[in-house]
């Protein structure tokens, strides 16, 4: 399984490095979201800094959908799925590989958005550990849930509209917990962050387990 995970993740990241969709399209999109939020909330710094944690996670949530759609459109090519099955790739490994690749892309994006928030909104980070840990845990959770739903709707005619409808309500605990952890990180009150980080961790663990268990049955239907 580990070998398959690394193979699939390596394949996806290699395709990404060569096609540069994340760098050329998703990164500008995430930055655009930051700028648009500034337009929506006005040029005053205070409301922007107050809203920054929420804006960060909204940007990440939308980017996750793009990353998931992109990742599964790679698999939709003719006969690609059959060749994966013939190559004997373990479904759980395939899931973990997709998760890893999407997670890496998202994390790179989050670093960019964070620096955007610091530079554009002038936010001061009091305890960066919260931002980092919540970022990693939240990303893993979002990537896991996104991969499950991406696989679920892949091959469907209406997948572009179905994915947000299914994924966004499920991802709401990450939005809530991530935003709170980020607020704490920006304000520097470290002791209050543990329930939120715990929630992010629980979400990630739950969806990784669900993906490993359910990915096999999901692959059967293609």
């Amino acid at each position: 399984m580990l070998r398959d995970t690394l193979l699939v993740a390596g394949k996806d990241l290699r395709i990404e490095l060569r096609s540069r969709v994340v760098i050329n399209q998703m990164a500008p999109f995430a930055l655009l979201v930051l700028v648009l939020f500034a337009f929506a909330l006005g040029p005053d710094r205070n409301p922007l800094i107050t809203a920054a944690p929420g804006l960060f996670w909204m940007a990440v949530l939308f980017s996750t959908m793009f990353a998931v759609q992109r990742s599964f459109s790679l698999e939709s090519a003719e006969g690609l799925h059959d060749s994966m099955v013939l190559a004997g790739i373990d479904p759980a490994g395939f899931f973990a590989g997709k998760l890893l690749a999407i997670g890496c892309e998202l994390f790179a994006l989050e670093v960019l958005v964070t620096s955007g928030i610091i530079v554009l909104y002038g936010a001061h980070v009091k305890s960066p550990a919260e931002l980092l840990v919540s970022g990693i845990l939240g990303t893993v959770g979002l990537a896991a849930a996104g991969t499950i739903y991406g696989a679920l709707v892949s091959g469907m005619r209406l997948r572009e509209t179905l994915l947000p409808l299914l994924f966004l309500p499920v991802a709401s605990p990450v939005l809530i917990a991530g935003t709170r952890a980020w607020q704490i990180g920006l304000q520097g009150n470290s002791s209050a962050s543990s329930p939120w980080l715990g929630l992010l961790g629980a979400f990630a663990a739950l969806y990784i387990c669900a993906g490993i268990v359910l990915y096999g049955p999901m692959e059967d239907m293609k």
Binding site: Y149, R180, P195, L199, Y207
Partner: peptide, 25 residues
């Protein structure tokens, strides 16, 4: 049937997390 069953289960798992997060929120 398969897609619906998986959707229902994945959503069901989310319920306690939603409850907790919204409650703490």
């Amino acid at each position: 049937a398969r897609r619906s069953a998986i959707t229902a289960l994945v959503a069901f798992m989310d319920v306690p997390l939603i409850q907790f997060s919204v409650l703490w929120w």
